[in-house]
């Protein structure tokens, strides 16, 4: 029992940090620019494929730095020559723009790399087990993932709340005209924020690529859960996203290890299970079986009972 709890906790934290790696860029773009970027997961996928391609040519470590910069550059270009024009027509137009962009990126990736999985492997310098807990190995690569996520969280938080750049960025969102009057180039600030946000998604992609499967559907597989993280954490709150990632990682992991069903709970207090019909399934489905949908349930509950999210302060 202790073994399963410890292992589940570790797995939950690791999965949560992977989620945060991806959600950090999304929440940054949303909190700074007010743009809900539907194409975010696509930039994450782009990061994975760039990482794969560059690793093939010159190795993983250069790829770890070059791929996010390239993807961030593409993100900045998208902002400069696409989003900036759309921005004038309001948030719905922006939303539609990023929505379409997601499809375009997936198609382009399929054209270049095909639909099959790319053979993107963990670099040999990180391909060993870091430690063993209850005879289960924890690969060094996952620890690297964890540390990168924490480092990104710390750096972003400091950057936004403790530096001049952070102040200007925050002011640009609420008082763009005033900031412009003071001599700052507000559009350029937005372009940088979007570039950094998409670059962060690419960092997640480069890291997650070898750990998961690098293929053209990876954006679709993780896209929806990112929005759960951002909404549960509070739209635009970096600490909220961090907490929500951890929460969702842990909830989902622990749920998988619980084999309890409604029938198991009610049997001791004398309620007999129905022997057939639609209720039979409801009665006998275990928590483990519905584990993957629990985050979405959480999303619905949060929107009803605490629309601002766990840490959100913004009123809409």
């Amino acid at each position: 029992m202790l073994e399963l709890v410890t292992i589940s906790a570790l797995n939950g934290v690791l999965y949560g940090m992977l989620l945060f790696l991806m959600a950090s860029g999304l929440t940054l773009i949303f909190s700074m620019m007010g743009v809900l970027n539907f194409a975010h997961a696509s930039f994450y996928m782009l990061g994975a494929f760039f990482g794969f391609q560059i690793s093939e040519l010159i190795g993983f470590w250069p790829a770890f730095f070059i791929a996010p910069v390239l993807v961030g550059g593409i993100g900045a270009l998208v902002e400069r020559y696409g989003l900036r024009y759309v921005h004038r027509h309001g948030p719905v137009a922006e939303l539609l723009f990023t929505f379409g962009l997601a499809f375009v990126i997936v198609e382009i990736v399929q054209m270049i790399w095909g639909k099959g999985p790319a053979d993107y492997r963990v670099p040999s310098s990180l391909d060993f087990s870091a430690f063993t807990a209850f005879s289960t190995n924890y690969p060094a690569y996952k620890m690297f993932e964890l540390l990168t996520a924490i480092a990104i969280f710390a750096v972003l938080l400091l950057l936004l709340t403790r530096t001049r750049v952070g102040l200007i960025i925050q002011a640009s969102l609420t008082h763009p005209h005033m900031v412009a009057m003071l001599g700052h180039n507000v559009p350029r600030v937005f372009m940088l924020v979007f570039g950094v946000g998409t670059g962060l998604a690419a960092v997640a992609g480069v890291i997650a690529g070898p750990a998961l499967v690098t293929q053209a559907n990876m954006a679709a597989a993780l896209g929806p859960i990112l929005f759960v993280v951002v909404v549960v954490g509070g739209l635009g709150s970096l600490s909220g996203a961090f907490l929500a990632s951890l929460l969702i990682g842990l909830v989902q992991t622990f749920a998988v290890s619980i084999n309890l069903s409604v029938a198991d709970v009610l049997r001791p207090i004398g309620v007999a299970a129905p022997s057939g019909g639609a209720l039979f399934d409801v009665w006998n489905v275990t928590v483990a079986q519905i584990a993957p949908i629990i985050p979405y349930l959480l999303l619905v509950l949060i929107l009803i009972f605490r629309p601002t999210g766990l840490m959100g302060s913004r009123e809409h």
Binding site: S8, N11, L14, Y15, L212, L222, Q252, V256
Partner: peptide, 17 residues
């Protein structure tokens, strides 16, 4: 669920246990 799970480590932990 079919083609929905991205992280199988909790399932592996269960198999191991």
């Amino acid at each position: 669920p079919l083609l929905k799970v991205t992280d199988f480590s909790p399932y592996i932990a269960k198999i191991k246990a």
